[in-house]
Design a protein around this nucleic acid. Sequence first.
DNA 1: ATGAAAGCGCTAACAT
DNA 2: ATGTTAGCGCTTTCAT
Lengths: 343, 343
Amino acid sequence: MKSKNDKRPTIYDIAQALNIAPSSVSKALNDSPSVSEKVKILVRDKARELNYRHNSQAASLRKGTSRTIGVIVPKINSAFFSNAISGMEEVCFDHSHQLIICQTEESYAKEKQAIETLITNNVDCIIISQSIETKSDNHLKEVMKRNIPLIQFDRVNKSISCHQVVNDNKTAAYHAVKELLKQGYKNIAFLGGSFEMDVYNERREGYLQALKENGMMIPYDYVVAGIHSEQNGYDAASLLLDSQLSPDAFLTASDYIAFGVMKAVFDKALSIPDDVGVIGFANEPFSAMIVPSLTTVDQNSRAMGIETAKIYFDELMDSQKSNVPITKTVPCTIICRDSIRKK
Amino acid sequence: MKSKNDKRPTIYDIAQALNIAPSSVSKALNDSPSVSEKVKILVRDKARELNYRHNSQAASLRKGTSRTIGVIVPKINSAFFSNAISGMEEVCFDHSHQLIICQTEESYAKEKQAIETLITNNVDCIIISQSIETKSDNHLKEVMKRNIPLIQFDRVNKSISCHQVVNDNKTAAYHAVKELLKQGYKNIAFLGGSFEMDVYNERREGYLQALKENGMMIPYDYVVAGIHSEQNGYDAASLLLDSQLSPDAFLTASDYIAFGVMKAVFDKALSIPDDVGVIGFANEPFSAMIVPSLTTVDQNSRAMGIETAKIYFDELMDSQKSNVPITKTVPCTIICRDSIRKK
DNA sequence: ATGAAAGCGCTAACAT
DNA sequence: ATGTTAGCGCTTTCAT
């Protein structure tokens, strides 16, 4: 299909056709001030005529910069990440940069592989949200050692000193619990994600703080770690609802977990929100579509994506700025729906 | 941040350290048969020691191939596309190729831009599912003219002669309608997407054929075009439900549209599935979560992604194979749930 | 089996 | 303002 002889036109072809030097063509195409308007017009017309396209590989090789940013996320098909990516894309588009997106599917091996791929492709910056499985930070250290700008977002490893964009997870969880207390719920359980990740730990802290401030007791089994899926949520909630002191409310680490909890509650013939209140995390589209609609914490993920990409363009691109890592915090918004009582 | 003097190691650094020729290093790293096992080991060890990484930009420039495939889709955050992409990624990973993903957000301008970007980045192949807005095919012709292998999937333009991977949309719609008829629904409306796209036209054909075969009349207003969103679905269904001959079933072009229809039905105080049956398309996760759960057409999108990527590796990569465009058809599966009556 | 040298397409010094 | 030249890092003939 791809034949070798009808090669794509280069600046040499334009130069030859116009009887000028290739460097002048390059300058003209890059709108350099040191080339006459006349030549620019000539070059641009000829380029169009020959159907010339800039070869960014060659330019990257020469310039040592690829105008490309690598993004590593666990999944692209979750509301949180796809919105964040969409936000990054918007900013990159404005700066005529582009994104290479890698999915890890929560695997550490794939995460390491993705970093190799991105290094190999000379990306100018790596943006990463870690996978659940990731324990080590060698691969991130490797990126730093190579002086490739690194930005973490959402699922960050705080021990790595680099720019970070995170939600105010603690505050969000704190307010979510306050909301539950305000509605009169008394026994609030927390089904969190991996407790090896700061995002989830912070949510737990917010949860604990809110309860402590109100002098509530927290049975040891009310805080459950390692909950990630709808099924996990269903199982954990079923267990808790059968226990001695059955919870009357759940704060969960994701809307999917929350949905599992809701199913468990219904299976016990209890009602939501009258008997049990439920709050999720992420504001997945379905959270507004189910019955009862799910109260959830919106993480403003698009804004997070925008802020993340901006760090590169504002701080990192023209390098040699501050070496002090910035941490940006994006506030969450609690979306109150029918899964908790209304005042 | 990124300083110039501590540059990344190249094959020259390895060559120098080992006192051998750069070409030998290159061959060793590529496991060429014309280099001794001894040198290979030496080179690999030194490469590890120096923390060498292959520079694929340079290699691409030299070899004229980038081991990169560009994918253009309207949205990454829909079940259909993210699953398809995931399937493509799997196949690419097995062939150590990678994906550059571009979103068009249904805009023709962005679609054109994405193609420019991909050409500029020397992708070895372009995989595209067109945006709704796209009317012209100049940008696709441009790709063909450059002898860049082009594969269309799902939302294809049949007038462009290239490889295609599609669902058996007509059959799927046909069987969906048959299913509705079997359950005793009599007045079945069709809320389709853009009628300028083959996918939607084929679904309409299947719908029409099933009804005609059963000698059913189809009021002219039962076939509605240009329906894309939940809101569109809600509006169109509301109108139809108020009309003279109110439909008792809807086949829709997406689960989101179906959800809008369901809302409209409930707002008229009608019941699903007793008064009205609804079938969607795509098997979005939420379709199983809502009440009543939504009967939908699963497009086996992951399989589509896999088949699409395979076309490149099986047919196109080693070029000069057949020039005859292949069309692969991936069957759909109807997932029967509560939104239609059960026998 | 190993090495020397050319060149992929572009840009950036450095002349002129 | 324009042209000459070298070189980014790699692969690939072609010699040896």
